[in-house]
Simulated assay, not measured.
Amino acid sequence: MSRIASRIAEARVGTRPDVADRARRGLVAWAEAEAAQGTSPDLVLDRLADGTAAQGLGRLALSASPVPQGLACASGCAFCCILSGADGGTITEAEARDLHAALSPLAGQADGRAWHPRACPALDPQTRACRAYDARPVICRAYVSVDVTACEQVAGGEAVEGPGTLGPYHTYLAALGLSRSALKGTRRVSTHSLARLAAAAVEGQTLDEALKVSRHKPGELDEELRRSKRDLGRAAGPGLP
């Protein structure tokens, strides 16, 4: 096992043990594959630090997961894109860079906030479709619902069943936490606010400016992991894991 994989194997994260173990195995396998391909150790560390590894693990898990039955999700139904959380939606630095690249050409155009003041700026305000769909982060890909009415209620601040995040999102978060633990003292593992990053991009801020204004405080990832742990085991709605 490579030195980096050994550090990941020894890392700890504050989530449910089975989720932590799944994320740890995924990251170790990723690090070993990178080493086998001849990727330099510095680049492997950089990809751990910017969340590329966690992002890839989350996307892979989503692609391998069966689609829950009875989903009500459809283009233009954007209640899930009303970002009411204090963190503005947790994303990695790699995802923030992808979103900025997708949204910065749209600078100056009307955005989702013309539909709803707390809507994601990535939305088209007329169609309510995502204008950065291919670059959307794991949190967007993993959030689903079996009840549109429930989504509208959640967007309004009510706690109801129906919407929820699929299991791979929790694995992705655990992978981020493990990356931070494994890289402690060597690399900074930052998370960013989806809402603030998207707003900065459509308002014409440079990538460096957008990363700066959207960067979370270090404790936000820990708080998101605690929220994730509380959510695990709850039934999000009929047909959802």
Rank of each mutant, 00 (worst) to 15 (best):
Gln37Cys: 10
Pro41Glu: 04
Tyr172Cys: 04
Gly70Pro: 02
Val44Arg: 15
Leu48Val: 04
Gly85Trp: 01
Gly157Leu: 15
Pro163Leu: 01
Val154Cys: 14
Arg3Trp: 09
Pro68Asn: 05
Pro66Ser: 12
Glu152Ser: 15
Ala102Met: 08
Arg136Phe: 01
Arg16Pro: 02
Thr186Glu: 15
Ala114Asn: 06
Cys130Phe: 14
Val28Ser: 08
Ala119Tyr: 10
Pro238Phe: 04
Arg25Met: 09
Pro117Tyr: 07
Ala150Glu: 06
Val213Ala: 07
Asp42Met: 10
Ala9Leu: 00
Pro238His: 04
Glu95Arg: 11
Arg3Leu: 13
Ala36Leu: 14
Ala61Ile: 00
Ser228Leu: 14
Arg97Gly: 00
Ala132His: 07
Arg118Pro: 01
Leu43Trp: 13
Val19Leu: 09
Pro241Gln: 12
Ser84Pro: 02
Glu220Thr: 15
Thr171Asn: 00
Ala23Arg: 00
Ser228Gly: 15
Gly51Thr: 03
Gly157His: 14
Gly112Trp: 14
Leu183His: 04
Arg24Phe: 03
Lys184Gly: 14
Ala107Lys: 01
Leu83Asn: 13
Arg113Cys: 07
Arg3Phe: 12
Arg113Ile: 12
Pro125Lys: 11
Val154Asp: 13
Ser2Arg: 15
Gly156Trp: 10
Val148Tyr: 05
Gly88Ser: 12
Ser40Glu: 15
Gly237Trp: 00
Gly56Tyr: 02
Ile91Thr: 09
Ser63Asn: 10
Thr90Gln: 07
Thr52Tyr: 13
Glu203Gly: 14
Leu48Met: 08
Ala182Trp: 03
Thr127Met: 03
Glu224Pro: 01
Ala86Asp: 14
Ala35Gln: 10
Glu34Asn: 12
Arg113Trp: 11
Glu93Val: 02
Ser104Glu: 11
Ala122Trp: 08
Ala31Met: 12
Ala35Trp: 11
Arg141Lys: 07
Arg227Val: 05
Thr15Glu: 10
Pro17His: 06
Arg22Ser: 10
Arg227Ile: 05
Thr186Asn: 09
Ala11Ile: 01
Gly156Ser: 12
Gly237Gln: 00
Val138Asp: 04
Ala142Met: 01
Glu158Trp: 08
Arg118Met: 11
Pro218Cys: 06
Pro163His: 02
Gly76Phe: 04
Gly38Phe: 12
Glu203His: 09
Val19Ala: 05
Gln126Cys: 06
Gln55Glu: 15
Ala20Thr: 02
